[in-house]
């Protein structure tokens, strides 16, 4: 039988993980769907699991001068309600799930799940989120881009746990998240988009674009973005179609039960155009 281990503290969890591999379960809102079983039967996990949602060390939101840290198992709803949470992330959480999912689901879980349709990943890529990862013997930090390596693939060692998500505090002039789903709420995205820009004295000082659900991971290309830094707003806008063309090759969506690749591609680029238009 598949075992379920319920640690009493983070150090208990890390010690146990050092000795035995477990699949980690946070809020369970996605894991339980993926390991769905017939009703009344135990969850259909394929390997032993460890339940980390209630570890107090993984809760909480701290605001520092330069950044905020979010406990990996802090429920999405609490992140939404916290005054220090960046607006872009709040907007995303509001769109990404129903209240019931927000109360149980966690940001760490959404990251580790590494779904191409994971909505929170899009703003997290945009904000250059760092993850703090702990094992019994060490603590390390990794950029979310390095952490997510493919469709549901992450660079997490079997003895590690994501403990914190660290976000820079940035005051964008404009930051937008758009989710395109099959209905207005409570649905998995067909695609999503996030854009952010900082303007000083009519000059673009920061310009960031990210797309979700249109490639194996979130599409973000700083080398494209930096071409437009220190351009004027007008120059940026004049370059709209050029920018669209630069992103075009990286938007490589698939056909599936929710949408098709033509739609995903065209609408992703439409949202980029709209974002530039409204700067």
């Amino acid at each position: 039988m598949v075992e379920g281990y319920i640690p009493t503290s983070l150090s208990d969890a890390l010690t146990e993980l050092a000795n035995h591999p477990y699949r980690l379960v946070a809020g369970g809102t996605d894991m339980l769907v993926q390991h769905h079983n017939l009703k009344t039967l135990p969850i259909n996990f394929k390997q032993d699991v460890m339940y980390i949602a209630n570890l107090s060390e993984l809760q909480g939101i701290q605001e520092e001068e330069e950044f905020i840290t979010i406990g990996a198992c802090e429920p999405l709803e609490s992140i939404l309600e916290h005054p220090a949470t960046p607006k872009l992330l709040k907007d995303t959480i509001l769109e990404m799930a129903s209240p019931a999912i927000r109360h149980a689901g966690t940001l760490g879980g959404n990251i580790a799940n590494a779904s191409p349709a994971g909505d929170s990943l899009v703003p997290l890529y945009l904000m250059n989120a760092m993850l703090e990862i702990q094992s019994k013997d060490r603590t390390r930090r990794v950029d979310i881009k390095e952490f997510i390596t493919g469709v549901r693939k992450i660079a997490l060692e079997p003895n590690e746990i994501i403990t914190k998500i660290i976000l820079d505090k940035i005051d964008f002039t404009k930051a937008t998240f758009r989710k395109v789903g099959p209905r207005r709420s409570d649905a998995i995205s067909k695609l999503s988009f996030a854009g952010a820009v900082t303007i000083q004295d009519n000059l673009v000082m920061d310009f960031r674009i990210a797309f979700g659900s249109v490639n194996i991971t979130v599409v973000r290309h700083p080398e494209i973005e930096c071409q437009f830094i220190t351009k004027t707003v007008q120059e940026l806008k004049q370059n709209k179609e050029h920018i669209v063309s630069l992103y075009r090759e990286y938007i490589r969506p698939i056909d599936d039960q929710r949408s098709n690749k033509e739609y995903r591609k065209q609408v992703s680029l439409n949202l980029l155009r709209q974002f530039i238009d409204t700067i």
Partner: peptide, 16 residues
């Protein structure tokens, strides 16, 4: 069938 559960078969919510 490509839509075989309530996640993929979309019916209206109160928002729609």
């Amino acid at each position: 069938l490509k839509q075989k559960n309530m996640t993929d078969y979309i019916i209206p919510t109160a928002m729609d």
